[in-house]
Computed example of a mutant assay.
Amino acid sequence: MGALIWLASYPKSGNTWMRTFLHNLFTNAQQPVDLNRLDDFTLGSSTAAWYRRYTPTPPENMTDEEAAKYRMAVQRDFTQVFPDSVFVKTHYFLGERDGVPLHNMDVTAGAIYIVRNPLDVVLSMVPHFNVTLDEAIEILRDENAGTKPTKTHVSEHYASWSTNVKSWTQIPNPQLLTMRYEDLLEKPRGSFKRVTNFLGLKPSTERLERAIKFSSFKVLKAQEQKSGFKERPEGAEAFFREGKKEQWRAKLTPEQVRRIVDDHREQMERFGYVPKDYA
Rank of each mutant, 00 (worst) to 15 (best):
N173M: 03
N173R: 11
N173I: 04
P174N: 13
P174A: 07
P174Q: 10
Q175A: 14
Q175E: 13
Q175I: 00
Q175C: 11
L176K: 07
L176D: 02
L176E: 02
L177Q: 04
L177N: 04
L177R: 03
T178Y: 00
T178G: 03
M179D: 00
M179V: 15
M179R: 06
M179K: 07
R180S: 01
R180L: 12
Y181T: 05
Y181A: 00
E182V: 03
E182I: 03
E182F: 00
E182W: 01
E182Q: 07
D183S: 14
L184F: 03
L185K: 13
L185F: 02
L185T: 02
L185Q: 11
L185W: 00
L185M: 12
E186W: 01
E186R: 15
E186I: 06
E186M: 12
K187T: 13
K187H: 13
K187I: 02
K187Y: 10
R189I: 15
R189D: 14
G190N: 14
G190T: 11
G190A: 12
G190D: 14
S191Q: 13
S191C: 10
S191N: 13
S191G: 12
F192L: 13
F192I: 04
F192K: 01
F192T: 02
F192N: 02
F192W: 13
K193A: 11
R194E: 14
R194K: 15
R194I: 02
V195P: 03
V195C: 10
T196Y: 00
T196W: 00
T196K: 05
T196S: 07
T196I: 03
T196Q: 06
T196V: 15
N197Y: 02
N197V: 08
N197P: 04
N197H: 13
N197C: 09
F198N: 08
F198Q: 09
F198T: 07
F198R: 08
F198M: 10
F198H: 09
F198D: 07
F198A: 10
L199D: 08
L199N: 08
L199Q: 07
L199A: 11
L199F: 10
G200T: 08
G200D: 06
G200C: 08
L201F: 12
L201V: 10
L201Y: 11
L201S: 09
L201I: 12
L201N: 09
L201H: 10
K202Y: 05
K202E: 14
P203G: 06
P203Q: 05
P203A: 05
P203M: 04
S204H: 09
S204Q: 10
S204C: 08
S204N: 08
S204W: 09
